[in-house]
Design a protein around this nucleic acid. Sequence first.
RNA 1: GAAGCCAAUCAAGCAGUCGCUGAUUGUAUAACAGUUAGAGGAAAGUCCGGGCUCCAUAGGACAAGACGCCAGGUAACGCCUGGGGGGCGCAAGCCUACGGCUAGUGCAACAGAAAGUAUACCGCUCUUAAUAGAGUAAGGGUGAAAUGGUGCGGUAAGAGCGCACCGCAUUUUUGGUAACAAAAAUGGCAGGGUAAACCCCGUCUGGAGCAAGACCAAAUAGGAAUCCUAUAGGCGUGGUCCGCGCUGGAUUCGGGUAGGUUGCUUGAGCUACGCGGCGACGCUUAGCCUAGAUAGAUGACUGCUCACGACAGAACCCGGCUUAUCGAUUGGCUUCAUCA
RNA 2: CGGAGUGUAGCUCAGCUUGGUAGAGCACUGCGUUCGGGACGCAGGGGCCGAAGGUUCAAAUCCUUUCACUCCGA
Length: 118
Amino acid sequence: MSFLFKRQQRLTPSASFKHVFQRGIRVRHSLFSCAFVYNELTYSRIGIVIAKRNVKRAVARNRIKRIAREVFRHNSVLKEINVDLIVVAYKGADQLDNCEVRECLEILLKKLQKRLEK
RNA sequence: GAAGCCAAUCAAGCAGUCGCUGAUUGUAUAACAGUUAGAGGAAAGUCCGGGCUCCAUAGGACAAGACGCCAGGUAACGCCUGGGGGGCGCAAGCCUACGGCUAGUGCAACAGAAAGUAUACCGCUCUUAAUAGAGUAAGGGUGAAAUGGUGCGGUAAGAGCGCACCGCAUUUUUGGUAACAAAAAUGGCAGGGUAAACCCCGUCUGGAGCAAGACCAAAUAGGAAUCCUAUAGGCGUGGUCCGCGCUGGAUUCGGGUAGGUUGCUUGAGCUACGCGGCGACGCUUAGCCUAGAUAGAUGACUGCUCACGACAGAACCCGGCUUAUCGAUUGGCUUCAUCA
RNA sequence: CGGAGUGUAGCUCAGCUUGGUAGAGCACUGCGUUCGGGACGCAGGGGCCGAAGGUUCAAAUCCUUUCACUCCGA
């Protein structure tokens, strides 16, 4: 069910956010969207972007990040493939509670999966 | 019991599963397993003060800014403690930018006679046939503010003109480290308000900030053109000048501008006992190690209980201030009511 | 993280230095002009000056705190 969520699996600035944003394919659902690009590694990497402009309080930003990591950790979609993925939260995301955030992200992942199958 | 004041503490708890970061031990070094530690009272705002780092070891002058009753505490402070003055409250207690307009300059709309060199609108009194002149500032009126207040005497009417009390000023004495307080004597009212107006006086401040700075290091480049200058100019270096250090300089074009490590947590540290002090705080001894991430670690799910969980997330580190905050608990005190 | 600035009428801005009456343009309303509209002319309305305290007789203006927004450095 689970796999480790180590430093390797995170997208660091050295791996170039810019590249993913420019070249990546985007999928969106409600207040979240993501962009992904295939990489040459054997595993996937995830980055989360929440602008201070969109979510003002630091507590809310941290909460969304943690939930997002949990969702992607428990989901088995990213295990088999190798992509660089960036998740973006939009304004109003801090108004949702934990369950709603999780539901949104799971729907987003399903959309992503369909897109990957094409 | 009700209302209120002050000081302090806590910030849902327990169990299970999965997961993250550091340290450490073992296998044995790209990893895995075990153990252990892991956000706050405000971590926030960045409003002050320091440490630390670089600039020269931070020096001189001007400018600019901050503070402002007295004494003490502190590394330092615009903070804290104690005391004094003033204001609010029945009280416990709370608030207080609280030096100086007899150094100078300025301001005060409208109204009003007059707003700082003083002066006289309606009045009052006297002289005069009247116009007018002289005296006066009690009363009226204006204003935020009008040249001491009350009473008695006095006078043509009045007026500190005189007296008593109060206020004010000066001097002396006493108490207090001092701010200041009290008392006595003298003066006959000195000349009002505004310094969160400029300013004066006293005290203090060099600048920048961990993205400071230090180290390791791949690749590329060490170029071309034009102009200016010869002891001045430029840069470091803040507002300016002096001084100090380095160095020819400016513009345009072209090339290049990966990254990592460190700074990073042992500190004006915390806890306990004792001593000194009204207190802030200081000192001795003993014990303890208590986040250190780097797109940024504390979370998710399940179960149970209840008060149904506020404000809110460390990013170099401390001391304060300010602001946000559902509630719960403890101690001390005040007023009112009732009972004994 | 650090540094700077701005909040005034529906919109864009003055006024703040040196405190007493809040003003301009566009927009809005009414009237005139026109066969009608636009343009033009003449009147008029609309503001707790981002919020809360303080200084002052009096605050948009001075001081303190606070809330938004914008920009800059990396």
